[in-house]
């Protein structure tokens, strides 16, 4: 009798496992984890949480954000790369993924991951103190060409702001002193304190400081003006080809099946008509930036090569 009971229980156990396998065929059927390569509370985290919230409504399963900021995002990427490609572990990251690889901080190329969609963009500006004589990007470029290595650009070594300053030097053919000044907020303080001449600032932050009358934006590093700050001129319209957005991108582990990619990507695409979603993004200084899986793939490859070229040219390639 006891043996019978034991075998019965074993059968039930096996069945229950296979049941969950059957369940897995219909994606999504359980909690989706989004690994965010930034700490809780920052802009990347906020945008990841907004995406998670709306994905939950679209897909009807819980979508949770897991913050793994360690190693500048290397830990989150590693967790995703090693996860099962079942669509329940995704990665939320931006241009830093390429920077990390090209500067040798993390050995696996982001091209190994399965790109799903780009979700939202943060436009970056090149800004200076209100008291600075430069009114336009051209003023800066002329001045800097006459005085190579004189002006200080505040950036964070090995982070995206570092590459933005390289993109500026590359496109305008100028030489700046690149000084490490930590995160965005620290840079603002150093700019105010007169230790820096130029900094990179997100459009959201720059808007506040321009309004407070303490900062001037020389250029937005994008092809089109940012809907959040239509007054800010772009670098491209001033004749300098500096395009440097933080494009938030959702990735899956390597080998994520196309059907699953499509489910997530389609759900995200629908959000374009959701005013609440757009408003939430705008509140944190982000703008709509969806791309379908094919375009995302092309975009990621393009970014990867651009960052790689800059890293090589300025001797950061490891």
């Amino acid at each position: 009798m006891r043996r019978l009971l034991a075998s019965l229980l074993t059968v039930i156990l096996i069945l229950s496992f296979s049941w969950s396998l059957v369940g897995a065929a219909e994606y999504p059927s359980s909690t989706i984890k989004i690994m965010v390569a930034a700490k809780a509370g920052g802009a990347t985290d906020a945008s990841g949480r907004i995406v998670a919230q709306f994905l939950r409504e679209q897909l009807g399963v819980p979508v949770v954000v897991v913050n793994q900021e360690g190693g500048g995002g290397a830990v989150a990427t590693d967790s995703t790369i090693n996860a099962k490609p079942d669509g329940y572990t995704l990665l939320y990251d931006h241009v830093n993924a390429h920077v990390r690889y090209h500067t040798g901080l993390y050995g696996v190329s982001p091209l190994e991951l399965t790109p799903i969609a780009t979700t939202a963009a943060v436009n970056q500006t090149i800004a200076t103190d209100k008291a600075s004589p430069w009114q336009t990007l051209d003023d800066l470029v002329q001045d800097a060409r006459a005085n190579p290595k004189k002006y200080a650009f505040g950036m964070q070594t090995g982070a995206s702001s570092h590459f933005l300053s390289l993109a500026l030097m590359d496109a305008a053919d100028i030489e700046l002193r690149l000084l490490d000044a930590g995160f965005e907020a620290d840079k603002l303080a150093a700019l105010r304190g007169g230790q820096l001449n130029l900094i990179q600032a997100t459009v959201g932050a720059a808007r506040e400081y321009v309004e407070a009358g303490i900062m001037r934006v020389l250029a937005v590093c994008a092809t089109e003006r940012d809907p959040l700050a239509p007054d800010f001129p772009t670098a491209v319209e001033q004749g300098y080809d500096i395009v440097f957005q933080s494009m938030h991108t959702l990735y899956g582990p390597p080998g994520l099946p196309d059907e699953i990619v499509k489910v997530i990507s389609d759900a995200l695409a629908k959000l374009e008509d959701d005013p609440e979603y757009i408003e939430k993004l705008h509140k944190i200084g982000h703008v709509w930036g969806y791309r379908n899986p094919e375009d995302t793939k092309a975009f990621v490859r393009n970014e990867f090569e651009r960052i790689g070229r800059l890293a090589e040219k300025f001797g950061l390639k490891k």
Binding site: G41, A46, L188, A205, E208, A212, K280, K283, I284, G285
Partner: peptide, 11 residues
């Protein structure tokens, strides 16, 4: 972060 999500940028 808690303030930012409401569109308030401390400064």
């Amino acid at each position: 972060g808690g303030l930012m999500i409401h569109g308030l940028i401390p400064g």
